[in-house]
Each structure stands twice: as C-alpha cells, then as structure tokens.
Simulated assay, not measured.
Amino acid sequence: MGNLLKTEWYKLRKDRSFRFLTWMLVAAAVLFPLIEFDNGASGLPTVKDYYRESILGPHANIVKLIPSILAGFFITSEYSMGTMKSIVSSGNSRFRIYSAKLIVFSIGAIIISLILPIMMTGSSAIYFGFAEMPEWTYYLQTLGLIILYGASFASIMAIFSILFTDSGKTIGFLLLFFVFADWPLQMLAAKVPLFETILNHSIFKLIYDIIMVDTLKSGDVLIMIVVPILTFLLFGALGSMIFQRKEIK
C-alpha cells in the first residue's frame, strides 16, 4: 500500500493538469483582490469581511468544480493511455489500487480547495492591511471544514472517474452535475419531506453553511464534521466495489 501511495503521489506532483490548476488559483488569489479594488474603488474592506464574503461566499463552487477537472485527467485518462490495465495486472488488489488513488486524489482536491482561503487571505492582508484579520478560531474551523468537504466531494468525483473511460466525458459530466445538481435536489426536497431532511444533512447543503460556522450550535457543528467523513467512507467503499467489478481493457 505504501508503494502505491508513493506512486500515486509522484503522478499527482507530475500531473500537468494539477500544476496548471494550482498555479491558476495561486495567480487568482494574488491578483484578484488587487484588481477588484483598483480603479478608484471607494474604501477597502477589512480582511475578515473580505474573507467571509468574497472568499468563503463563492468558495463552494471551487471545491465542487475545479477538482472535477483534475479527476478527469488524473484518474480517467489512465484508461485511454493503457496505464490502468498495467496497474491492475501488477499484482496489487483492486481495493488497494483504488484506495491509493482515492487518497492521493483527495489530497490533490484538498490542496486545490485550500489555495484561495490561504493565499487570498494573505494577499488581501497585504493589500488591505493587517488591522482586522479573521479570528483564528473561525479561520481554522473553516479551513478544517474545507478539508473535510473537499475530500468528501472527491470521493464522489472518483466514482464517476472510474465509470467513464474518457477524460472529456468525465470532466463534462462532473461539471454539469455539480453545477445543476442543487436545483433539482431542492425541487425534489420541496415535494418529498423525507428527502428534504436527507438533503439538509448532506454535503450538497452543508457546504454552504461553512461560512456561518461561528454562529452554529455545537450540535450543528458536529453534524457538519460527521457528515463529510461518513460521505467519504460511504462513497469510497462504493467506488471500491465498482472498481473491483469493472472490466478494464
């Protein structure tokens, strides 16, 4: 298992899509605060307000969409290149192979998800001043939750990445799925009370509550922690079962 993790980590570090996405987000984190409040903008926000409204506000889309691109290139592309067949015939069990890929891909998704909250907070502090920074407890809580939800969404992306054998189809499907999933789920929840309860306690809904974690009760915070962990384990097990039964040509 250790050698599989090292191999997958090496492939992730050398993956061009991962490098491109990482540097693209780093550039956006450094330049966006400067561009947004340039051209004679009236007044500058405090870093804590900017972090809450401009960074965490739209960040759920980053967690759901950007790693979807990585999934297509990092996992699915191995089918078209014939790498997956070589890996499966290497003697390692499919459970270990999938587990290693899921763990490393989740790490990649987490890294991508953390770039804006960390880098943009730092760059905005340089531009706006260090006078009013986010409270450390709130900042660390939100980063911890981003890590959990980044991994949980990665476990869902990994399943579709092994179902498709073309990276373009994987990327296209995942982007469309995560962009349009909220609306039909909310419509279904409005008509089925039981499903509404399930949706309200799913990562699709709870990810939007990260921004207000400092106002939630301890029980609600516990739910926000437990749900993504269970989601990762559930979809990780489901993906492993699918991978073990998949015919690889």
Rank of each mutant, 00 (worst) to 15 (best):
residue 93 S to C: 01
residue 15 D to S: 12
residue 249 K to C: 13
residue 42 S to P: 02
residue 22 T to C: 05
residue 97 I to T: 07
residue 40 G to D: 05
residue 82 G to N: 13
residue 200 N to A: 09
residue 154 A to W: 00
residue 68 S to D: 03
residue 219 G to P: 09
residue 61 N to S: 15
residue 6 K to Y: 14
residue 94 R to C: 08
residue 249 K to R: 15
residue 24 M to L: 15
residue 162 I to M: 14
residue 62 I to T: 13
residue 69 I to T: 10
residue 37 F to M: 00
residue 248 I to C: 09
residue 193 P to Q: 10
residue 202 S to K: 07
residue 154 A to N: 04
residue 87 I to F: 08
residue 58 P to Y: 08
residue 92 N to R: 00
residue 63 V to S: 12
residue 44 L to D: 05
residue 47 V to Q: 06
residue 115 I to P: 06
residue 211 I to E: 10
residue 92 N to W: 15
residue 145 L to N: 05
residue 155 S to C: 01
residue 117 P to K: 03
residue 120 M to E: 15
residue 20 F to V: 01
residue 134 P to Q: 09
residue 217 K to I: 02
residue 99 S to R: 06
residue 198 I to E: 15
residue 21 L to V: 07
residue 87 I to D: 06
residue 132 E to Y: 08
residue 243 F to M: 05
residue 151 A to Q: 11
residue 236 G to Q: 03
residue 60 A to C: 05
residue 25 L to I: 02
residue 106 S to W: 04
residue 65 L to S: 10
residue 236 G to I: 00
residue 38 D to S: 15
residue 127 Y to K: 01
residue 51 Y to Q: 04
residue 193 P to H: 02
residue 154 A to S: 00
residue 122 G to M: 12
residue 113 S to K: 11
residue 159 I to Q: 09
residue 132 E to C: 05
residue 46 T to G: 15
residue 12 L to W: 14
residue 160 F to G: 12
residue 193 P to Y: 09
residue 247 E to H: 03
residue 86 S to Q: 15
residue 191 K to D: 02
residue 81 M to C: 12
residue 197 T to M: 12
residue 58 P to L: 03
residue 88 V to Q: 07
residue 208 Y to G: 02
residue 183 W to C: 00
residue 71 A to W: 14
residue 59 H to Q: 09
residue 100 A to H: 06
residue 240 S to W: 03
residue 37 F to E: 04
residue 26 V to M: 09
residue 13 R to V: 09
residue 196 E to C: 02
residue 46 T to F: 11
residue 161 S to C: 12
residue 214 D to G: 05
residue 135 E to D: 15
residue 93 S to Y: 00
residue 66 I to M: 04
residue 182 D to P: 00
residue 227 V to L: 07
residue 153 F to T: 06
residue 27 A to D: 12
residue 23 W to L: 13
residue 98 Y to P: 02
residue 185 L to P: 00
residue 234 L to V: 10
residue 237 A to T: 01
residue 151 A to H: 04
residue 238 L to S: 03
residue 14 K to E: 08
residue 15 D to F: 02
residue 110 I to V: 12
residue 5 L to D: 00
residue 176 L to N: 12
residue 136 W to D: 06
residue 101 K to P: 05
residue 52 R to G: 05
residue 206 L to S: 08
residue 175 L to E: 11
residue 247 E to G: 10
residue 186 Q to V: 04
residue 124 S to H: 04
residue 231 T to C: 14
residue 32 F to W: 15
residue 208 Y to L: 09
residue 169 K to M: 13
residue 170 T to Y: 03
residue 219 G to R: 12
residue 100 A to M: 07
residue 33 P to G: 11
residue 56 L to Q: 10
residue 86 S to N: 11
residue 234 L to T: 12
residue 4 L to G: 02
residue 119 M to Q: 06
residue 111 I to G: 06
residue 95 F to K: 09
residue 19 R to S: 11
residue 134 P to T: 15
residue 128 F to I: 06
residue 77 S to T: 01
residue 96 R to G: 08
residue 214 D to L: 02
residue 195 F to V: 11
residue 85 K to M: 08
residue 21 L to F: 14
residue 52 R to C: 15
residue 16 R to C: 00
residue 41 A to L: 05
residue 107 I to Y: 13
residue 109 A to P: 05
residue 71 A to N: 14
residue 209 D to I: 04
residue 48 K to W: 11
residue 242 I to H: 07
residue 224 M to R: 09
residue 188 L to C: 02
residue 195 F to G: 07
residue 248 I to W: 07
